[in-house]
């Protein structure tokens, strides 16, 4: 039963979201014109179809316990060829994943304050460490040169205005920009 629940869980989540969004779509405000469909018709139609597919999967997985599922052509070709087998044998490292996601969230949250250069040095180095890479010299060089290189390419060549950070961190960014000749 637990297996059935697990298999059905993504569809239950999507189904609940679809029901909620259908209610939200019902509250879309627009100047109604007689004989014309409104801006709610299209999203509502998609949500109904989405709900029907989810109901089918929930009944199939949870109530009937059926595991057969019709595959897309590419999926079937890969399956028949055995091309996916080696990948499925790989181990799983959920802690690395959580660490990587958290680090990325922190990077996004702090880039405005630290500025692109400093935040990126820290991010690159820590991401490589989380990715189980342990050549410290390579990590240091790749992080520093990588951050500098990206800053140079995007701010000097491609003209993207990357975040400079706030005081006192912005001083580092401004000094680097002046050194690179970016005004």
């Amino acid at each position: 039963m637990l297996n059935r629940l697990l298999r059905a869980s993504p569809y239950v989540v999507v189904q609940l979201a679809a029901i909620y969004l259908y209610q939200v779509a019902g509250r879309i405000e627009f100047p109604a014109a007689p004989g014309r469909i409104g801006p709610d018709f299209w999203p509502k139609s998609i949500l109904v179809l989405l709900g029907l597919v989810c109901v089918y999967e929930i009944i199939k997985n949870l109530l009937i316990g059926e595991t057969f599922t019709a595959a897309g052509l590419l999926e079937k070709l890969m399956k028949d060829s055995g091309a996916n087998e080696s990948e499925e044998q790989l181990r799983s490292y959920p802690l690395l994943l959580v660490g990587g996601i958290l680090l990325t969230v922190v990077y996004v949250a702090t880039i405005d304050k630290l500025g692109f250069f400093l935040a990126t040095i820290a991010y690159l180095a820590l991401f490589m460490v989380i990715g189980r890479y342990r050549r410290w010299g390579v990590i240091a060089i790749a992080s520093v040169l990588g951050s500098l290189g990206l800053m140079f390419i995007f701010m000097k060549v491609v003209y993207v205005s990357l975040p400079l950070g706030t005081e006192p961190f912005s001083a580092v960014s401004l000094w680097l920009l002046a050194t690179m000749g970016v005004h």
Binding site: L47, T69, A70, G72, L74, M78
Partner: peptide, 16 residues
């Protein structure tokens, strides 16, 4: 129908 994954999962992905 021609891509990867099951057809129902692909349909859900498309509708999202």
């Amino acid at each position: 129908s021609l891509g990867g994954g099951s057809i129902t999962n692909a349909a859900i992905s498309l509708m999202l």
